[in-house]
Amino acid sequence: MASKLSPIPKLVLRRLAIGALTLIVVSAVIFWAVELLPGSIATEILGQSATPETIAAFNAQFGLNDPPLWRYVAWLGNAVQGDFGQSLATRRPITDLIGDRAFNTFFLAAYAAVIAVPVSILLGLIAALDRGSLLDRWISSSTLAVISFPEFFVAYILILIFAVQLGWFPSLAGVTPTMGLAERLTVSFLPALTMVLIVTAHMMRMTRAAIVNLLALPYIEMAELKGMKRWRIIAIHALPNAVAPIVTVVALNLAYLIVGVVLVEVVFVYPGLGQLLVDSVAKRDMPVVQAACLIFAATYILLNLVADVIGILSNPRLLHPR
């Protein structure tokens, strides 16, 4: 059959355009929200005793007197070129400030993801395979139990067990840029494990639900009636058709690993973006807050975009049109 022009490039381009548009809208929202924060950087930096004159001079120096829209456009223009400006608190370029931190956060997220994604998909498949069995119920309830605790609580329990009592891993995950990979992995093991425990339940349950949905379909019965093994039916017949929902939930959780780890970073004193964000909000260091938020937003949008595209590519009707 002469395959007609695939609609995929068009669909992917449209998703990309929507992603870019979302990012611009989000950047405006971030800018506006940061404007709304009470207090001013000038009083925060110069102290309560600052005179009106020094405050005015400070504001003028950093262009804080310009109209918000003008500052937004200027900020966005520089941001797309990779220049987030200067930290008001430390006077260092934000790019330098964020670089290491962002790397640390992405490293931790990747660390957790490499463990969590395969484990939860596998657990989901096992649970779906023996639906209603003791094993299925055990997997479901134990992952649910873990997710029901606040993440800082999970973190402290892990510290109590693995750092304080067993002493296998340090309780403070103070990674440094000069650290070797092995040491880095050891030092950041506990925060990574905390995050694995937090995201596994969601991904596992979604995998299980997606597969169980498919198991009632005639082609699964057909595979059974062809004498195929149960495990093969789940992994080879059902899983490829469940890619889209699974990838969507995986992407959401990966995004959460990057964006939602503030508490975990704080508990383990891990030098990541989340910590930086919390510190900067406290110091009213607006350009840093904006930059960090923008990175978070971009991550979220990008991951969801990738999930969308994989979902499209996993649909044979779109990949192989009539």
Binding site: E221, M222, P316
Partner: peptide, 25 residues
């Protein structure tokens, strides 16, 4: 025992072929 018979010595043809074929294969 049943798996060994199914598909090999006893085969099945379903009502809705559109639903009985795996859409991804």
């Amino acid at each position: 025992t049943l798996r060994d018979l199914r598909g090999r010595r006893i085969a099945y043809v379903a009502q809705s072929s559109a639903a009985a074929f795996n859409p991804a294969w």
